[in-house]
Write a protein that binds this DNA or RNA. Structure first.
Lengths: 157, 157
DNA sequence: CTATGGTGGTTCAAATTCGAACCAAAGGAG
DNA sequence: CTCCTTTGGTTCGAATTTGAACCACCATAG
């Protein structure tokens, strides 16, 4: 058991800046999406992931891993999306206990309608503050971090 | 009203990497803190902010801004901390409707006991993946973002 | 075929979250 | 001094969240 690897001043600055920015950003995003389209950030993310999946469909568990939400949380959110008619549940052909979440046409339209406002926020508060080098660096850091925490390995299928 | 400023591939990569990493990190932190000390991440943050405040005390509203949580959320969390004896509420001498949250000695000890494990997570999953340049860049980006979203301006008092 | 262990999803209870409504007190205006 | 608007905090109700318990089904070993 060795001594505590405390954070030095530079590290602490970085951590506090990150912490504050990420919390504020999440709040702004949530707020904008709710006001603009009645969607949760998680729900929006679900639509995004589905829209770029083959057949606009995905297994519940994989979807949960992508969006980084608990299984029960996903069940709940997909339930809401289903009620809005943006997503449908179908049974998985290859596995009877599996459930596929499928993006409906209505869901696609909703996403297309909602994306601009959402992206405007992401840009305004984060992306547009980065020059190309900074963007590259951030991507590199975040990828390393995500990998270290066991994010879905690239093309897990 | 101009065309949607869609994200190009590099920007999208950056955003997705950030999104995944930040969600995973938050989850890991929450999990570690809960298991290791029964604290919420918000509660931990409250202790941290109080510990570095003059007199280890702070007004509720200012604390809420620092931790980036709603006023009602802060009331709730401070309530929990009070029940654990880590924080006390005292009335504000200069403003009768104000409430000061004060860190107790027990709270200080709890923080000292809890910090190492927490920082180990922050290091393992984020900070230690950054070389000095990357750390500087991340700090710069996050500061700009935080400022753009109206984070407490430096030394708002 | 049948027992067994593991995985996919949903359900359930408990904890949190946020915003809106609300009360108390501060700060000015007249 | 009194009225009115603003600010600090708490309370309340509704929406979400998560982990644990649970059921159905695949898969592998006998």
């Amino acid at each position: 058991m060795k001594e505590t690897p405390w954070l030095d001043e530079r590290e602490l600055d970085a951590w506090l800046a990150y912490l504050t920015a990420s919390h504020l950003l999440e709040r702004r995003i949530e707020e904008q999406l709710k006001a603009d389209s009645g969607l949760t950030h998680d729900q929006y993310e679900i639509l995004v992931r589905l829209s770029s999946a083959p057949g606009r469909a995905m297994r519940m568990t994989e979807l949960a891993r992508m969006v980084v939400v608990s299984k029960s949380g996903l069940t709940y959110q997909v339930g809401g999306l289903e009620k809005k008619g943006l997503v449908e549940r179908t049974s998985c052909p290859s596995d009877d206990r599996g459930v596929m979440a499928v993006l409906t046409d209505e869901g696609t339209r909703c996403l297309e309608r909602t994306a601009p406002g959402h992206l405007a926020v992401v840009r305004a508060y984060l992306i547009d503050h980065c020059d190309p080098d900074e963007l590259t660096t951030m991507t590199r850091i975040m990828r390393k971090a995500a990998t270290a925490m066991g994010a879905f390995p690239p093309t897990s299928a």
